[in-house]
Design a protein around this nucleic acid. Structure first.
Lengths: 140, 140
DNA sequence: TCAGTAAATAAGAATATTACTATTTAGAAA
DNA sequence: TTTCTAAATAGTAATATTCTTATTTACTGA
């Protein structure tokens, strides 16, 4: 995610490009695919001046809203992942070891939007995660 | 949910039928379709002896695991709903007023299980919620 | 460039949720 | 019925997440 692109996405909704937002994205990139709010916070605390924990949470929520990151709900808590292509996707999550595998499948393509329209809802988004047991954990 | 049925579902996994579990279900029924852990806790605190908050959370998680209740993630927090027929379903959630509408649609019926199998995952369940704006909130 | 304004931040308080541990209890089996 | 044992509970501590408020800052337009 290049800064001009981020700026455009933010500006679209009246949000501002701040050093903290860029730092959060940089930390997420640095930490690898996925990280919890606390991990990002701790990474950024190494810098001076340190960021506020609330700012990390607030911005991860905002970045998720504009589609730059995605939230994944594990048993042990919530982690965030970059969606570099801007297109969201979903996950298979192992309930034992918490291994996460991305799947290209998205229920958007199925017919639920019909039902939403019938109920008078304007669909904005959805949450979809599949839980199961990975190959390794099935052996145990 | 009649007690014998609940007992059978619990026994199946080695869980016990406790007064607290029955009280939580009774409270949920009494409070209407949906309630938060705190609402259930406060309702049960009117009784003597009062229940522990931890017990409410722990058992709502367990009841969700065996399919008697379902968790719905709202912006303002998590609420629980009875699934009287034992078959789960999903929801349209208004992000403004938090009105919830049940929808019969379930992504289980779509092809994601194929992908899960290919990745070596044994699917246990899934989370699916649709967020949008209801008719009333679209007028605002 | 400079001033004005809405948005964002930091810091700490408040709330929500989960974990820990000693004690109690439901259900199994004698 | 009595005993035994794993599961469950209460109470409290710990952690995760969100809210509140005073202050700072990014962008806008002159």
């Amino acid at each position: 995610m290049k800064t001009p692109v981020l700026l455009a996405l933010l500006k679209e909704k009246g949000y501002k490009l701040t050093a903290q937002r860029q730092a959060i994205l940089a930390a997420l990139r640095y930490l690898g695919e996925r990280a919890s709010a606390k991990e990002i916070y701790e990474e950024l605390c190494k810098e001076k001046p340190a960021i506020s924990l609330d700012t990390v949470y607030r911005n991860l929520r905002l970045l998720a809203e504009i589609g730059i990151v995605q939230q994944i709900l594990l048993q042990s808590g919530t982690v965030f992942e970059l969606t570099d292509d801007g297109h969201h996707h979903h996950h298979l999550v192992c309930v034992d070891c918490e291994k996460v595998v991305c799947i290209p499948y998205c229920p958007e393509s199925c017919a639920y939007t019909e039902q939403a329209r019938a109920a008078g809802f304007a669909v904005l988004g959805h949450l979809f995660e599949v839980y199961g047991r990975c190959t390794a954990c099935q052996q145990k």
